[in-house]
Amino acid sequence: MTVILGQTFTGISIGAVLLLIALGLSLTFGQMNVINMAHGEFIMAGAYTTYVLQKSISSAGISLLVALPVAFLVSGVLGALLEWLLIRRLYLRPLDTLLVTWGVSLMLQQLARDIFGAPNVQTRAPDWLTGNIEIIGGDDPLTFANSRLFILGLAVAAVVALSLTLRLTPLGRRIRAVVQNRDLAEVSGISTSTVDRTAFFLGSGLAGVAGVALTLVGPIGPTMGTNVIIDAFLVIVVGGIGQLKGTVIVAFVLGVLQSVLEYSTTVSVAKVLVLVAIVAFLQWRPQGLYTLRTRSLV
């Protein structure tokens, strides 16, 4: 029993990381249909921001909390810059965007290597995140690492913040309008290019926040973005574009699935099985779990 619960908890914490990574994508890929392969490098930028801040602020706790908004800004500005320089020229060619942003991601990785060196670096976790919480005591204890709990909280907070922004603010209304009907939004006086850039800023900023979270569970390195980006894209593909709830559900389901399969087989076999499960799922729902209903043929 504890094993099942333990695997579920591990899965939920994997899911929380996935969710944080995929949340920014659900805005840029899901809403704006831009495949940004450099998203992983924006995560990396957030992680290195945490590292740099910790070098200058001695208290690990304060530097982590400061890193959250700063990383959001750093990655967000990088994203807005990328949108302005390249992506806006490519809105009609999504597949080319994929390859162009891959090129950007290669250059950013090399930049990180030149600045921080190729070996991975690490940050210290603050004291209040190093312990464990005991959920079931006794001889067969079930514990949950504080850092994992923090990531889960961060993921939930990010989802709530993003969905409130989309639902309640004027900016959110404009983003939704552009997603639903770009031409109509434009003739209604919405500056679609500004909306695009702002949405891209938000999505990339969320990648920075995810990067801060990743420093708590693993090392920081130039290739850390590449390692997670495919999984994040799969979350969006399975979750369906244009809706946050699909992303949230699928992130946790894939996390639990991955953790359970890893427990019963090996890490590498689990990866293959998850992919098979995804292809099988797309047979049933080729557009993903939830999708915006439109009358278009595609």
């Binding site: 390249l86 020229r89 390859l99 162009v100 891959w102 290669l106 090399q110």
Partner: peptide, 12 residues
Amino acid sequence: YFQGLLFIVALA
């Protein structure tokens, strides 16, 4: 860097 630039120039 060159490879990244190739992707960008060739496709964009």
